[in-house]
Design a binder for these strands. Sequence first.
DNA 1: TATGGATCCATA
DNA 2: TATGGATCCATA
Lengths: 230, 230
Amino acid sequence: MKIVRVEKIIERGPFAASQEWKRIRRQALAAIQAAEWPVGSGSFTVYPQSGKKTGEGNGVKPIKDNVIKMLTGGKPKYGALIKQRLNERNNTAILDEWVSEYPWPVGEREKETGGSRPGGMDAAYVFREGLVCFEWETGNISSSHRSLNKMCLGLLKGRIKGGMLVVPSRELYRYLTDRIGNIAELEPYFDLCRSISCEDGVLDIIVIEHDALSTDVPKIPKGTDGRAKG
Amino acid sequence: MKIVRVEKIIERGPFAASQEWKRIRRQALAAIQAAEWPVGSGSFTVYPQSGKKTGEGNGVKPIKDNVIKMLTGGKPKYGALIKQRLNERNNTAILDEWVSEYPWPVGEREKETGGSRPGGMDAAYVFREGLVCFEWETGNISSSHRSLNKMCLGLLKGRIKGGMLVVPSRELYRYLTDRIGNIAELEPYFDLCRSISCEDGVLDIIVIEHDALSTDVPKIPKGTDGRAKG
DNA sequence: TATGGATCCATA
DNA sequence: TATGGATCCATA
């Protein structure tokens, strides 16, 4: 898969200048670039049919799953990983590594019940100084706003050191489910993100695109969510 | 309809202290409080069925339409209004009044085609010093994030003087379409809004709730009623 | 085509 | 129940 643009919305302070961040970003970009369709083909080829009508075009879910797997080395999700390490050798520290479904340290309400915190970052890099959050945005464009807000809030409150949001280019968007997050519609809000008070942190928007178009590949399957009849 | 809370997220500078703003807010709150279900009943009564499953509970669209009509006095939408006044007496000024579907002065991309700017504020109060934007949020909670971002961007860029966002309480949310915008899920982000750089402007979140529950009233129709996909 | 929805899904 | 998502809709 092609990365057509990396928009560095926020790049401030020591962390932005650190080798650690450069390495984390390099790892993330590499995992994205390794994404394939069809899986195993060595390239990302999309069936060129508009995704705006029922059952037509390409779904979005399968694209993401393999990238997260690539990034985390196929490890269990955060919750399961914690348990596994406790069992194995009484060493629960998750450090200097990527993990999926890391619980968000901001943006959730306090539960009266003290309940769990469902949902998490698609992936996070955990290191001594903090967290870098990685979100592969495959929801509605409005969902990308929430994602961006979460990262900005995390930076504002100092709960994360960095955020990376992956969104389709407007070209790729054409072939995916209608109203998926895309760079064109997010761009006007970059100034809003830039205006937040944060002296040490980074925020990248990473724009992805297919390598090629071909009617010889299968369409990426859609699910039965939303208004789909299934 | 009950207003259970008015959260004054941003209240800064001369405009926040002005009589004009107080009057504008009073008008908006009055229009909201006048909302009825069933229409004409003098109260807002909801059929107490969870809206989380297909075809069950209450839709959200009809609630909003009457409030906007109340606020704008049933005038045509912005585009049609401009044309009407041109025809009538060559006086196109829209001033010191509420109008629906006012085009957003931020957040849209420049169209290469110079094309139109579809979509608009649900309503806007237009006055000499600027605009107050009124959004009655009935979309997905993620859509509320976009709405909030739009208002914050408008305030940041000085394109609007005020924003008002209407959202259901968590109590009312239970009976509406699944995942509708609601106060509980927006609240953690208030700090983010507060942090924007704006020296003269206001931002209110208005929380609404039904007056009563009763199985004697019809459910508020969902959008797929009478459609092929319903 | 472009934009703001409106609705239901999957999973913890 | 709670949350992030995925899918199609209505209208300009």
